[in-house]
Amino acid sequence: MAASATTPSLRDAIHSLWDSNPEVQAARADLEAASARARAAAQPLYNPSVAFEAENADVNRRTAGISLSLDVSGKRKARTEQGLAELTASQASYDLLRRDVAARWLKAWSAATLAEQQRELGQRRVALMQRFDTLAAQRLKIGDISSPERDLAALALGEAQIQLATLQANEASARAALLALIGETPTQPVALEQSLPPASVAITPLPLDRRPELLQARAMQASAEASIQVAQRARRPDPTVSLTGGQVRAGPMNDRVIGISVSIPLPILNTGRAEIDAARAQADAATAGVRARQWTTRASLQESQARYDALRDAANAFGQGRAAAFGDRVALLEKLWRAGEIGTSDYLVQLKQSVDTALSALELQSQVWQAWFDYLSAAGRLTDWVDGRTEEPGNE
């Protein structure tokens, strides 16, 4: 896998995951709800009221009236700004969740792939031990090895079978983690590249304030600050203007009447100051949350980059050394044992070391890929990497 692009099959798999994952679907529904609330907040606050009155007495009265409260304090504007801020926060939360779900899937996918390779290596070890056990039985018959050495071969086969069961259990666990994200076993699993991911310098982290965590925190801060304006506007009373017209009949007299009235509530019993204080406290908390998120995001990037560089350097050094030549070493050991140049115990010790080293190499490769996905997430470039957008942030 190169830094410049992902494979089409991997990209398609992640986009399919985003379409089908229940967590993403729930976040998408929340985003649609936030969009609807933003549209609702932009609507006028007050609807007109219509009233009809009729009275039969000494004076017969027939009137109709219409009244409307006027938003003279700017409540609609404040609510609109808060709705848009909440929509921005919801969009940031949605993007962040998509990134986290993709990261979890990538880590589960790579873990399952490498667990499969470890299980295959465990099966190969069992096959080697079975072959060795058969050869040891034959050599015991002709007196080339002793009975204790023959028992060593049988014990080594039993140990290999036990370790294979452990590897099979690990593979099942890794596949279960993947199944929990996609809901079904993939019919055509995406293959993991054998080469290591690129060096961390191949991906330029996004500026701190453009990373998803900070976008979400700042959007929540903007929403909290907008709520202050909403609370301040809410405590200012709005007048209600009423217009009434009709007829009044008293005996032979029939007069037309028209009237206008203005009413305004008095904020005496509830001044609304407590709501403003609460909104300011929430805004202060959101501002502190932005600072805290800046610190944790910066520290996370440094930690994930250092861990990834260390693991990648170790895996690269292992791949270039003699320890990586597993097949050649196994063949050489059997040749030396057949020739009698090494004893049975030495052969088993060295073969076990070779297999354990090969398994450790696969584990190291898995850790490298896990660290790579963590680094991409911390750098704010995971979704860019998935979609093949790996240019410099300023040039995108």
Rank of each mutant, 00 (worst) to 15 (best):
A250N: 05
T271G: 14
R249M: 08
G245N: 02
I260S: 09
A274E: 15
Q247K: 11
R256I: 03
V248M: 08
T244R: 14
G246P: 01
I260Y: 07
V248Y: 05
V262A: 14
G259N: 03
S263I: 01
L266H: 11
P252I: 10
I268N: 14
G246W: 12
I268Q: 15
G272K: 04
S261D: 05
G272Q: 06
I258P: 04
M253P: 04
G245L: 01
I258V: 12
G245W: 04
T271N: 15
I264D: 03
G245T: 02
E275F: 01
T244F: 06
N270M: 08
D255Q: 06
V262M: 14
G251I: 02
S261E: 10
G246A: 12
I264L: 15
T244G: 08
G245Y: 01
R249C: 00
R273A: 13
T244Q: 14
Q247L: 10
A274M: 11
G259S: 01
P267N: 05
T244V: 15
S263Y: 05
G272P: 04
I258H: 05
I268D: 14
G272S: 07
G259T: 05
P267I: 02
P265T: 03
T271L: 13
T244W: 10
N270D: 15
M253Q: 14
I260D: 00
N254A: 06
G246D: 10
T271P: 02
I258A: 14
V262H: 08
S261R: 08
V248R: 12
Q247W: 10
S263M: 05
A250C: 00
T244M: 11
A274Q: 13
E275P: 02
V248Q: 12
I258G: 11
G251A: 04
S263N: 08
L269E: 13
V257M: 06
S261I: 05
T271I: 12
S263H: 07
L266R: 10
P265D: 03
I268P: 07
L269P: 02
S261W: 07
P267S: 03
P265M: 04
R273N: 13
L269H: 13
V262Q: 10
P265H: 05
G251H: 03
